[in-house]
């Protein structure tokens, strides 16, 4: 860290202050001619990278089954208690499946703990960031809205395998 300059350390020119003002003005003037960074949202959409944590989704296998085994670890680890899971019995090999899986997006804080704790790589933070609802009920997403084909999530899954 640069050493902090006290008033007594300043040169006469700096103490007069006017040259410093001119420097500041020059800087803003210079910036006025630089291109802007603004992304005009509804027309231009931000495409996040693989490290982005958007809406959590459930992985849907190629055969249409959910990968989730309803262990409830995501629900337990969720610091905002946004996830509710109700497990039930299934004849499939995994024995257990989520009869109901609900993420309350009004509670979700996008911390990604659910994704981190998931033993099955079944809950993944997607790139979806357009999450506006007009009522509380719409903010609670059930299995129908949560399941996303595994092919669409490959980028994030690869990222997780590399860095998690």
């Amino acid at each position: 860290m640069a050493k902090k300059k006290r008033l007594k350390d300043l040169s006469l020119l700096e103490q007069i202050y006017l040259p410093e003002i001119v420097k500041g003005l020059a800087l803003t003037m210079k910036n006025m001619f630089k291109p802007s960074f603004t992304m005009e949202y509804p027309e231009v959409k931000f495409e996040p990278g693989a490290s982005y944590r958007g809406r959590p989704v459930l992985v849907m296998e190629e055969n249409g089954d959910e990968r989730c085994v309803a262990c409830g670890l995501c629900s337990r680890v969720c610091p905002a208690i946004a996830i509710e899971v109700q497990a039930n019995d299934t004849d499939k090999e995994k024995e257990r499946y989520p009869e109901r899986f609900e993420i309350n997006m009004l509670r979700c804080i996008f911390c990604g703990f659910c994704e981190e704790v998931c033993p099955e790589e079944a809950i993944i933070m997607s790139k979806d960031y357009e999450l506006a609802y007009t009522n509380r009920e719409d903010g609670i997403l059930g299995l129908d809205k949560l399941l996303v084909p595994v092919s669409e999530l490959q980028e994030r899954i690869q990222f997780l395998r590399k860095y998690k």
């Binding site: 803003t28 003037m29 910036n31 006025m32 001619f33 630089k34 291109p35 802007s36 603004t38």
Partner: peptide
């Protein structure tokens, strides 16, 4: 507008 330019933004448009 000027504030936007100075901050590399677009401003009201």
């Amino acid at each position: 507008k000027i504030s936007a330019w100075a901050q590399n933004r677009i401003g009201p448009n």
